[in-house]
Design a protein around this nucleic acid. Structure first.
Length: 487
DNA sequence: CTAGGGTTAG
């Protein structure tokens, strides 16, 4: 029966999709089931009732379904974990390792490390993990939370959980440390342990990139020199890393010379090289040069990717004008490229920036036709510009739309909207700001102290003493959570 | 999620 429905539905989809792209977004039965389950979980206020529903035999749980729901609840961590927990007690279904990884990621983001390690233990006792991937997630979150030493300790203790420390996992931990700005620490580990793990070109690239990220290109070069001395050859990734490093450090002439040198030496320049150059030169204002490279690359036998178009489109939006960006957009579509959400977000921002609010909103609608629904970033852009323009109501409308749809607001959304509440000096807006603050805390986001203070001041100045008191007690409750970086 | 390219404000 279900099978029948499914096949006739997909037949219908095929038929409809012939008539126009609008219909390709028609939800499949699986998608609509997922959507209704998601809404059910999100809107339930009674955990016991929810538990009963989710345990009912009518729902056929699969790891895919569970993971989809966990990802959609990403910006509502407590809800996501509640869902995960309820399903852990299902009489027939048992969580897949990938769902554990997602749940672990969420606990880490909420800085709930006790639950995190409890989940790791449960994975182990069920003999479904933890895997090196699990440890990569944990290490990354520790590093991002300003606990690089914890991140490294995770790596050291992997073996106790049955995971071998090999070159892969070593490279992962180096990269995690570098990306969180702890290059110094990564480099020291690298030097101490490179013999044991027999480091390769990837390890050197990771360290070089680490130095580049903090704009220390000479250090990166030094590392690469060492690499060559030890008999390892740089590859195209090494070159692209340095190229981007020069640009990031503002060494535009060095970057250009490096690019020319790459060409002269006939190293296999690829689409990443061109994308880096186009974006790098464009954003520092060298639009003509970026444009030349963009049109030249095809002659050189390298086809642009969607990312290349995105880089070029951003350059045109920022340093040229939106109309030209729109033409390049139409041009890429005509050539058969499928724009992604990055493309749309760039153009939507460009149009908003040029004051063309309505055209921006039209483009936001058009996204849906491309099976590329507006995402959090899209909404954040729109909300920001509407608030900046004083059209607070439209910003709030969009926010409302997000909450009811399947694109939950993230930390940025709340910050943007709360700032927007200070544009008009209205008492009502202060109350809305306060409510947003309560909601964001409820969803596992930690407002900055500045946000608390602004709202408190606002409420006190507009005579909302009672509400201010409530916010103040919320703040002290939040303060108990250890959130500041401690070394 | 073993490394490099597109979304975040002036």
């Amino acid at each position: 029966m279900v099978q029948l429905w499914r096949s006739s539905r997909s037949h219908l989809r095929r038929l409809l999709s012939l008539k126009g792209r609008n219909f390709t977004a028609l939800p499949s039965p699986e998608a609509s089931q997922t959507a209704s389950l998601y809404k059910l979980i999100l809107n339930s206020s009674d955990p016991r009732a929810l538990s009963q529903t989710l345990h009912s035999t009518a729902i056929e749980w699969t790891p895919d379904l569970v993971n989809t729901i966990l990802k959609r609840l990403w910006n509502h961590g407590p809800k996501a974990l509640q869902f995960f927990r309820i399903l852990s007690h299902h009489p027939l279904y048992a969580h897949h390792a990938s769902s554990f990884d997602l749940a672990i990621d969420i606990t880490a983001r909420l800085r709930d490390y006790r639950t995190l390690w409890a989940l790791v233990s449960r994975m182990r006792s069920r003999r479904i993990g933890p895997s090196p991937k699990t440890f990569a997630i944990i290490a990354e979150r520790y590093a991002a939370a300003g606990k690089p030493h914890r991140a490294f300790k995770v790596f050291l203790h992997m073996r106790e959980y049955g995971c071998f420390q090999d070159l892969h996992s070593f490279n992962t931990i180096l990269d995690v440390l570098c990306k969180s700005g702890r290059v110094e620490m990564a480099y020291n580990l690298f030097k101490t342990l490179r013999g044991r793990f027999k480091v390769d070109c990837v390890s050197y690239n990771i360290i070089a990139n680490g130095w580049c990220l903090i704009k220390r290109t000479p250090k990166a070069l030094e590392v690469l020199k060492e690499m060559v001395e030890r008999g390892l050859s740089p590859n195209i990734t090494t070159c692209n890393t340095m190229l981007k490093g020069y640009i990031r450090a503002g060494q535009i002439n060095e970057a250009w010379d490096f690019f020319l040198e790459m060409k002269k030496r006939k190293c296999e320049i690829d689409v990443v090289t061109y994308t880096t150059v186009i974006h790098g030169f464009g954003v520092v204002g060298e639009v003509k040069r970026a444009q030349k490279v963009f049109y030249r690359m095809v002659e050189d036998g390298v086809l642009p990717s969607v990312a290349t178009y995105n880089a070029f489109i951003q350059v045109l939006c920022k340093k040229d004008n939106v109309e030209n960006a729109m033409s390049v957009f139409e041009e890429m579509v005509k050539k058969g490229y499928v724009p992604n959400s990055v493309t749309y977000n760039l153009l939507i921002r460009g149009l908003f920036h040029a004051g063309q609010m309505e055209r921006a909103m039209e483009l936001m609608e058009r996204m849906k036709d491309d099976e590329c629904d507006p995402n959090v970033q899209t909404y954040n852009i729109a909300i920001r510009y509407f608030c900046d323009a004083g059209e607070i109501e439209r910003g709030l409308d969009l926010f409302q739309k997000m909450g009811s749809g399947d694109c939950l607001p993230n930390l940025d959304t709340y910050n943007i909207l709360i700032s927007g509440m200070f544009v008009r000096k209205k008492s009502d807006d202060m109350v809305v700001a306060g409510k947003l603050l309560l909601e964001m805390v409820d969803r596992g986001f930690m407002p900055r102290r500045l946000t608390f203070n602004r709202i408190l001041d606002g409420l006190l100045l507009t005579g909302n003493q009672g509400f201010a008191k409530e916010i103040l007690s919320l703040q002290s409750r939040c303060g108990r959570l250890p959130r500041r970086l401690k070394l």
